[in-house]
Design a protein around this nucleic acid. Structure first.
Length: 599
RNA sequence: GCGCCCUUAGCUCAGAUGGAUAGAGCAACAGCCUUCUAAGCUGUGGGUCGGUGGUUCGAGUCCACCAGGGCGCGCCA
């Protein structure tokens, strides 16, 4: 099939999109002067109840005001306009002005053939119109192992990026390494402490702490290995006489680089376990050293958006130790922020915000037409200033979107889990993956809206019951595969050209309808940046399929494979193949493996 | 004190951009295995959508205020 054919097939087999076009065409024929904004609000979606037909539209109600007519009257006239339609068999007005659409069964069943022809490309759409979107996620500081706090953002970002790719965006997955500033300096000191210990120094945290500017941080065991590799690589050359603390000029840069490299390696290994692979890793320090921050500040300055000033003290808390200070400020208030934001510290160095402006400037320079940052909830207060800066630089209000992920509480059988085997104070990503597996971690992390807090129960994530959506969906796929194996053994292979007319039982049609709503689910989820909708769709599809499966237990004639009825069997095998294909397609977005067999 | 997020069945959560009688799973109760996987299916009961006003043909969804929970609040990143 050539590319234009595929595109045409997609339009043709996205039933709801096709219906919408037909309805709007009919509506415009009757009411030519409707404004485009009004038409844009028309929705055609699956009916919630079988009695309401296969699809339903709010077109008459949406249009009523602009048309200055009663919704029911518009609906009645519109419903009469579909004689001879290839899709719509019957249209009826209901309630306050809904039009319920009963489709020709063949038109509905054609979805099955479309799925088989398109394979996992069924459901792709052109929402993104090949726009370049940069999705930045994880971006954990390289100062320790990844923990659950990073995990949700990692999965949400990764799945969102996959989803946008399916919806026609050209996606870059990016990780921003915060390898400049005070935290990595503290990391260097802590690594140096472990290095001295590796050389044999009897140096407790309490003894070392007073020698560290700002105090010793990162006392977890995970830096012991870093100290050891430093000792292996450099011997005692970085230490002072008698394994004492040498002049930082001798060791600081070496130790910092070594520690960052080691910890980033750990981060990459953890991400790999999670199935997350970024296309680009960007270094904050590389940007700073290239002068990008000063360049970005220069651009804002040239636009007259920088001034030296003193901020008002925040009300309420922290008022005691507040002193007025003159700082270099960005006029964020001109771009939707509450207060102007500092770009330089009193010692003249750049704030993190200044570097972050440079970083986003850099992403745009690299071609990102749209940037989506996935952040933890603790960065919520940072959103408006970053968007203000991007808007000031680009002139576009929507160039940067931020998806915030709220906190995850980890439980085991309802009891909060706090301690980690490795890191002590927090549960690591690696612990979690080892306990419940990558698929369960990934799936469970997108079974909630990202802006709501969630509870992650380790015991529930591995439970093999319908309460566990990972299992439930994978089991449905395994059952599909089981049928297809048995069919193949009997010489029946799914065929896109199969006669589908025998698919007429309600549970069969329910599955067909669900398959038909996959494209609009993908498009809606991508447009709303809500990957969890994919997980819920898969659960619903699995549920429809399990129900159909069990009909075969109650009635032998409802089993998929009917030895004496090749036409029915071919139709049902095609349906099962279509279900398996869409489940695989959805799981691919989630980055979860489809399972062939569960025994 | 200010800003952002959240509040839906006993519990965990959906609710497709304002639509019809608000839906799943768990838990409770009652059924379904000589069968392509019973790790599943079918049915029953369970709700003042935190509260009060407002916007309109229509509000869980939008607006205002209030209550409760979370996150954050000038030289941390």
């Amino acid at each position: 099939m050539t590319k234009p054919d595929i595109a045409a097939a997609r339009r043709e087999e996205n039933i709801f999109a096709a219906l919408r076009e037909e309805i709007i065409a009919a509506l415009v024929g009757q009411l030519p002067d409707l404004p485009a904004e009004t038409l844009a609000r028309i929705d055609v979606g699956p009916a919630r109840e079988a009695a309401h037909g296969d699809a339903t539209t709010n077109a008459a109600m949406v249009v009523a005001k602009a048309a200055r007519a009663a919704p029911q009257a518009i609906a009645a006239r519109l419903a009469g306009a579909f004689d001879g339609s290839a899709l719509i068999a019957r249209a009826e007005v209901a309630g306050p002005g809904f039009i319920n659409l009963h489709l020709h069964a063949d038109a509905l069943r054609a979805v099955v053939g479309a799925v088989l022809r398109l394979g996992e490309a069924y459901g792709d759409c052109d929402l993104g119109q090949a726009r370049a979107v940069n999705v930045e996620y994880v971006s954990a500081n390289p100062t320790g192992p990844m923990h659950v706090g990073h995990c949700r953002g990692a999965v949400v970002g990764d799945v969102l990026a996959n989803l946008l790719g399916k919806a026609g965006f050209v996606v870059t997955k990016e990780y921003y390494i915060n390898d400049a500033g005070a935290q990595v300096a503290a990391l260097a000191w802590a690594s140096y402490w472990r290095y001295l210990q590796a050389l044999g120094a009897d140096l407790s945290a309490e003894d070392f702490d007073p020698q560290v500017p700002g105090g010793l941080q990162y006392q977890g065991d995970y830096l012991v290995a870093v100290g050891q590799t430093l000792a292996d690589a450099h011997g005692a050359s970085l230490a002072g006489p008698g394994v004492s603390v040498a002049d930082p000029a001798v060791w600081f840069d070496i130790v910092r680089e070594h520690a960052i490299a080691r910890l980033m390696q750990g981060v990459r290994e953890d991400l790999d376990l999670l199935g997350v692979r970024h296309d680009v890793f960007s270094s904050e320090r590389a940007l700073v050293e290239a002068g990008a921050a000063d360049a970005a500040i220069g651009r804002l300055e040239a636009a007259g958006l920088i001034y030296e000033g003193v901020l008002e003290p925040p009300r309420g808390k922290l008022a005691e130790d507040w002193e007025p200070r003159a700082q270099t400020l960005f006029r964020a208030t001109g771009f939707g922020d509450d207060v102007d934001r500092p770009l330089r510290k009193s010692d003249g160095s750049n704030t993190y915000f200044a570097n972050d402006i440079a970083y986003h400037n850099d992403k745009m320079a690299r071609g990102a037409a749209l940037m989506i940052d996935v952040w933890g909830a603790d960065h919520g207060g940072y959103v408006s200033r970053m968007q203000a800066a991007v808007r000031a630089l680009s002139g576009e209000p929507g160039r940067l979107e931020v998806v915030l992920c709220q906190i995850v509480h980890v439980l085991r059988e309802g009891v909060p889990v706090r301690m980690s085997k490795r890191a002590g104070s927090f549960i690591t990503l690696r612990d979690m993956i080892e306990e419940v597996g990558r698929d369960a971690v990934r799936f469970t992390m997108v079974t909630r809206k990202s802006d709501a807090q969630m509870e992650f129960d380790l015991a529930a994530a591995v439970a093999q019951t319908k309460d566990n959506p990972v299992f439930y969906v994978q089991y449905a796929h395994a059952r599909c595969r089981s049928v297809l194996r048995a069919a193949a053994a009997a010489g029946v292979v799914a065929d896109a050209g199969a006669q589908l007319g025998s698919l007429a039982a309600e549970p069969e049609l329910a599955v067909v309808r669900r398959l038909a709503s996959w494209p609009r689910t993908v498009e809606g989820a991508a447009a709303a940046r809500e990957p969890h909708r994919i997980a819920f769709y898969l659960y619903d599809l699995a549920s429809d399929f399990h129900a159909l499966w069990n009909r075969g237990r109650d009635e032998a004639t409802m089993r998929f494979l009917q030895a004496d009825h090749p036409t029915e069997t071919a139709a049902r095998v095609a349906l099962v193949e279509a279900v398996a294909t869409v489940i695989r397609s959805g799981l691919a977005v989630l980055g979860v493996a489809p399972v062939e067999e569960m025994r």
